[in-house]
Amino acid sequence: MTWADAHRLANIAAAKAHAQLGIDPGKLPIDVAEAIMASGAILMWRPMPRLFGVYINDPGSSPGILVNSDLTPGARRFTAAHELGHHFLEHTTCTDEADCPSTMPTGDDSIYSLRERRGWTPTEKMAEAFAAWFLMPRRAVSSALRVLALDRPRDATDVYRLSLMLGVPHAAILRHLMNLRLATSDQVRRWSRESPGQIKRRLDNNLGMPASRWPDVWTLTPAFDGRTITVHDGDRLCVRVAAGYDVTAPDWLPEVAATAAGDGGPSMSSSATARSAESVRSPCLMVRQIRGPGTPFSWMRPTHLSG
């Protein structure tokens, strides 16, 4: 089976799964955990140093999915969708070992060489392609591009921001852009030369360097007004503010740095709100970092950018 065959069949299978499991393919991001529960499989998470995930489908037992909790958030979601593909396609028990290049468990999440995909079995190709189309169907990608005010990615930074909107690894969206006819192979190879870590350093301008580049860096614009996004402990939110806009942030988003364009620093003032928020009224880049209790997930309430 070629990768083209796998993607043609998996595209159809993922669309059927969306319909059968009641998943809106235009929603950002697609909730793979909810889908797994709706499918009747049991979802579990645990550290597994040598495995990405496992699909268990033995006679006489309930089907189950086990995902390595030590992966990056995007890699956890993609691995879960890969295992859901095994379940939906009625495969037998499958183990995805850590030397499989599906979702690299590194802070940079670097793309693997295309030649490394040649050793995959038809079963694994189908599950991998299913994960791509399940988490990144055309409607979801189109929704994400609209929020980013794009028709298609223009550079590596756009690809990284798109991966955050979809909740997938940077490598996964890079590969899938060609399936969606949103990038050429030359563009993908060029964009893959810049790692997510390098992109993150550019997005937050190296202000207050974090201890690790594993967490993500979000760049928020007025298009995010009223939206709810999924963030994790250590993630950074960069807000680029034009003149005449107020940015109000809750007190659990401590400021890392703020710089103004041309005047040496933004004017800061406390707002009289119950959230003890701070407001900035200056063209600037604000960097705030999620400060959580160390749990795997945390939720960010909508950030309001109002003129």
Rank of each mutant, 00 (worst) to 15 (best):
Pro63Ser: 08
Ser102Thr: 15
Gly119Tyr: 06
Leu203Ile: 15
Ala132Pro: 11
Pro29Ile: 00
Asp263Phe: 05
Pro302Phe: 03
Trp133Phe: 14
Arg46Phe: 01
Leu220Thr: 03
Gln187Ser: 05
Asp263Ile: 02
Met104Asp: 14
Ser282Trp: 06
Met48Ile: 14
Thr303Gly: 15
Ser143Phe: 08
Thr219Pro: 00
Asp99Gly: 05
Arg236Asp: 05
Ala35Tyr: 00
Pro137Lys: 08
Asp5Lys: 00
Leu203Gln: 15
Ala249Thr: 14
Val280Cys: 13
Asp109Gln: 14
Ala14Tyr: 01
Thr121Arg: 00
Val141Tyr: 06
Val54Lys: 09
His86Gly: 08
Arg236Cys: 02
Ile290Asn: 03
Ala144Val: 03
Met268His: 15
Thr295Glu: 09
Ala75Pro: 14
Ala272Lys: 12
Pro302Lys: 00
Phe88Ser: 03
Pro169Asp: 01
His7Ser: 12
Asp235Tyr: 07
Ala149Gly: 11
Trp214Arg: 15
Met136Val: 09
Ser110Val: 14
Pro59Arg: 02
Ala17Lys: 01
Arg288Gln: 11
Glu128Lys: 07
Leu166Phe: 06
Gly307Thr: 13
Phe88Gly: 01
Ala261Asp: 12
Thr295Gly: 06
Trp299Asp: 14
Ile56His: 09
Val32Trp: 03
Glu97Lys: 12
Thr72Gln: 08
Leu66Trp: 12
Glu97Trp: 15
Asp158Cys: 06
Ala223Asn: 08
Gly167Thr: 08
Glu83Gly: 00
Trp133Cys: 12
Ile173Trp: 01
Val280Arg: 11
Ala35Met: 07
Pro254Val: 10
Pro49His: 02
Asp109Glu: 12
Ile30Glu: 02
Ser270Phe: 07
Ile65Ala: 06
Pro59Ser: 04
Leu203Arg: 00
Phe224Cys: 06
Gly197Trp: 09
Ala211Asn: 15
Ala19Thr: 06
Phe224Lys: 01
Ala260Asp: 10
Gly53Cys: 02
Leu207Thr: 05
Gly53Ala: 01
Asp109Lys: 09
Pro47Trp: 01
Leu135Glu: 06
Ala38Arg: 05
Ala4Asn: 11
Pro137Val: 06
Ala6Phe: 07
Val287Asn: 01
Glu278Asp: 10
Arg193Glu: 14
Met48Phe: 08
Ala140Gly: 01
Ser143Glu: 15
Ala19Ser: 12
Ala242Trp: 04
Ala4Thr: 13
Val217Ser: 05
Phe130Val: 05
Ala80Leu: 02
Pro250Gly: 05
Ser276Val: 08
Leu180Met: 10
Ser192Arg: 05
Ser163Ala: 07
Leu135Trp: 02
Asp251Phe: 11
His7Leu: 07
His170Glu: 11
Pro266Ala: 10
Asp246Gln: 09
Ala183Val: 04
Asp31Gln: 10
Leu43Glu: 03
Ala33Arg: 12
Arg161Tyr: 02
Asp263His: 09
Pro47Gly: 00
Gly22Arg: 02
Val54Met: 05
Gly85Phe: 04
Met286Arg: 15
Thr157Gln: 01
Arg118Leu: 10
Ile173Gly: 09
Ser270Lys: 11
Val231Leu: 04
Leu114Thr: 08
Glu255Cys: 03
Arg146Thr: 14
Gly244Lys: 06
Thr228Met: 15
Val141Thr: 13
Ser298Asn: 14
Gly264Leu: 01
Pro153Asn: 00
Tyr160Asp: 00
Ile65Met: 07
Asp96Val: 05
